[in-house]
Design a protein around this nucleic acid. Sequence first.
DNA 1: GGGACCATGTAAATAGTTACATGATTAA
DNA 2: TTAATCATGTAACTATTTACATGGTCCC
Lengths: 182, 182
Amino acid sequence: MKGKSRYVLLGLLAEQPLSGYEMKKIIGIRFRFFWDESFGQIYPEIKKLFEQGMITLSEEMSQVRKKKVYQITPLGMRSLKEWLKTAPEKETLRLEILLRVYFSKYGEVSYLQNHLASFKEQHQNDLNQLQLFKQELLSIPDPDQNHRDILQVIEFGIKANQAYLDWCEQTQHYLTNKIVKQ
Amino acid sequence: MKGKSRYVLLGLLAEQPLSGYEMKKIIGIRFRFFWDESFGQIYPEIKKLFEQGMITLSEEMSQVRKKKVYQITPLGMRSLKEWLKTAPEKETLRLEILLRVYFSKYGEVSYLQNHLASFKEQHQNDLNQLQLFKQELLSIPDPDQNHRDILQVIEFGIKANQAYLDWCEQTQHYLTNKIVKQ
DNA sequence: GGGACCATGTAAATAGTTACATGATTAA
DNA sequence: TTAATCATGTAACTATTTACATGGTCCC
């Protein structure tokens, strides 16, 4: 669990100079289905990266907006590359919906049905956005030659969300039957 | 992100009296693929639940081992039921492997292949254990009439892990091709 | 006797969220 | 003019991990 946020920021800056706000936006859109960072983490982390010489302020800073655009340094690039060598930790996930199903014996079915419907809706949205993002990626030029890599990330999201939706339907049928049987 | 650990503990105690150590074990085995709690969270949370009258010490305490077995109180049961009504928050997940793929342009393919192989192995293990657990659940008596609920939780794990493994194979092929093309 | 596991707990550190503070710009 | 969004940051709080401390039991 130690200091992964910094590598997300370094990774984003490896491609192009960005401000903290912009990085947050990219994470919120592109990484939304597998990662998240809050401003409360981003800005202090930027401060540290700057102090350590991993990033510097770019010339491209906007004077109109009080925007601070950063770029990665060779030191930051080396640090990113070193991190990419290390083994990822076992992923953290906490699926509260499964806790609800597990303990559903102690609650009312109708509540669980609501929870399930909103879970399904959320992941249907995720899936739609991922499919849109995929189309978009395939239709634009690929100057940095990394679209295929990004596509693989999207593919993960598509497969996972399809599995979730599949499970939702199955569980909804199960719950409907459960009520009939009562 | 607030206080979900307590409901995991209450949920487990709703079925049978347990000690902190036993709860940790159950979470570590049965919830392993979608939830985790450490002792550093479990024991302080038990203390709070006890002080708030949500749980009490059970008679079933072992004298041999210095074991403290807790049972849920009517107050604790009400609290659990109230929680089951509330909407679950959007799940947290952090899939470091996807970060590695996304930024793979800056690293060496062979490292990513190693990371992917170990990710695949982990989830193959998860899948195997879930399938075993499913068989076990279907073959034993179901006095509390909640095996079907638990089965749905297992089904989620099976579907999700199958999707992950599917993605792993696809990504491994992609990486192999990538090397050939170089 | 030693290693694996049972068993409970605390302390320190790190991670992460949420609320707050401030102010500019854009577009309806 | 007002709401949304851009933009940066800090402070307080909450959550979570990791390391430490302690000691028992079981079995080889």
